[in-house]
Design a protein around this nucleic acid. Structure first.
Lengths: 266, 266
DNA sequence: CGTTGGGTTGAACCCACTCAATACGCGTGG
DNA sequence: CCACGCGTATTGAGTGGGTTCAACCCAACG
């Protein structure tokens, strides 16, 4: 089994550590290498288990953990499985905005509202721990580390989302799919799971929605990646994907980056 | 002067309150109407001024408030002006990921890291208040409301970013520009500033980067919006834009929404 | 003056979308 | 067992919106 060391935690395009030089030759220190202790996800689970009351719930694929409009009074943290967070618009459009794995917090984007502003759906048999938000706040003086964990998680989500914007704007469809697979694999690796053979529990429609493209484009991108040997399909169901070398996905993404636009900064 | 009542706070595409019915006829309560007290931005400034030590700094357009790699030890909050947050990639690509106004927190996406992971640049003469992060954490027991303010701000940023993803994926270039203007106007309105005549302190390149399109497309979109009467240009410098009716921008956006994709949810 | 940076506009191209046909996997029921 | 339907996935052909490349305008500035 292959494990990325010093890997990024998130299922998101942290395409490259922000090292090296920018266009204006200003040295950008590698913030990733220094920060973000590996396996941050363990911390939250351990802290909660030790210090806070919480309720466990086991859900199966397709079950809703939270629906838009539900009153917000607790945060969730995943102890097992995979969930998606879906934003809904009034006109029926929907957007998968986040995929989360074991140890991830869920519902952080709803803390400003008295009600849930997104759907949270299990994509797999999952175990969810629910923590009452008021209780969490009260226990801050007693367990200061808890606050750091929550802040860290929110902060990670934010910068993760923002890296997606960069990818969305600058990468081709093929590169986005490749990066999607890479980041999925990275998330698995960070949790000590095997990354050479992953099973996507998402339809092409879901992947396309998440990546901002149509199912046809997703399908073609997969085919092209397979044709070029970066991935290959296991058995007949085309959701099992073998990734011989995860690093080659990253190389592919970096290779297809369009020439950087000229300087914006002043 | 025109003020949107029950308006959204953010410079971001909260294109529509999540009311009405989803594709599967599931009633989605209007979370916006209930939550998010108007002028949330006042709270943070007031709380800090009253309870926390902070340092003031005045910067001018183009000045960097924070650079990638700077050690992270304090959060900022804007008391005046406008700033942009820029994410940098190793290959020189850069992406404006956030625009912030008076009362907005800055640096929330860097709390998980010991160093800043983005540049923060003033776009205007601005006054920044800096709050030591450790001090902030220590004062949580004494001023509980402070934590709620920070959490609210982070949560807002998250859901704001996520609404952008929906827009990015589903709106045409013209609609994105229109929505950009609408949300900018909404931010001004929420701060009791006039919205019928706004001055963008951004080049076309910056707008294009922020919206994920080229400067030519931005320029053409502006021209088309002007031709259709939704906006008009003041004087010669084409950065001063008159918006006769802000609501018509929203109508335009909603009119050009492509037919929603079929159901993803199970 | 010429230069430089920002902005607009035109023409050609190309990637991703749309429309459409086909294939596959799977459960259901004759 | 095969037939059938259904949801999902793949692939092809054609279209179009946004990009690319290019020329040009305009204001500021030395």
């Amino acid at each position: 089994m292959e494990v990325l060391n010093r890997s990024d935690v998130s299922i998101a395009p942290s395409i490259m550590a922000r090292a090296a030089l920018a266009h204006d030759a200003r040295p950008l220190p590698d913030v990733r290498a220094v920060g973000a202790p590996p396996q941050r996800w363990r911390e939250s689970l351990a802290l909660i288990e030790r210090h806070l009351p919480f309720s466990r719930r086991t859900v199966r694929a397709g079950d809703a953990i939270q629906r838009v409009g539900d009153p917000f009074n607790c945060l969730h943290i995943l102890n097992l499985g995979t969930v998606k967070t879906v934003n809904l618009a009034a006109d029926g459009r929907e957007q998968i905005v986040s995929l989360n794995f074991k140890g991830d917090w869920v519902g952080l984007d709803c803390m400003a509202s008295p009600r849930w502003v997104c759907d949270v759906i299990a994509m797999d048999t999952s175990e969810v721990w629910s923590i009452d938000y008021a209780t969490l706040l009260q226990s801050v003086p007693r367990v200061p580390a808890l606050l750091q964990a929550v802040h860290g998680a929110m902060s990670c989500q934010l910068s993760r989302d923002r890296e997606w914007r960069l990818a969305q704007g600058t990468l081709s469809a093929d590169a986005r799919v490749a990066d999607f697979l890479r980041s999925w694999a990275a998330s698995l690796a960070e949790r000590d799971l095997r990354t050479d053979q992953i099973t996507l529990r998402m339809t092409r429609a879901e992947i396309g929605n998440y990546l901002g493209m149509t199912i046809e484009t997703v399908s073609r991108a997969f085919s092209r990646l397979a044709r070029s040997g970066l991935i290959s399909f296991e058995d007949k169901g085309r959701r099992n994907i073998a990734i011989p070398r995860v690093e080659s996905l990253l190389e592919f993404v970096q290779r297809t980056v369009r020439t950087p636009s000229p300087a914006l900064l002043q």
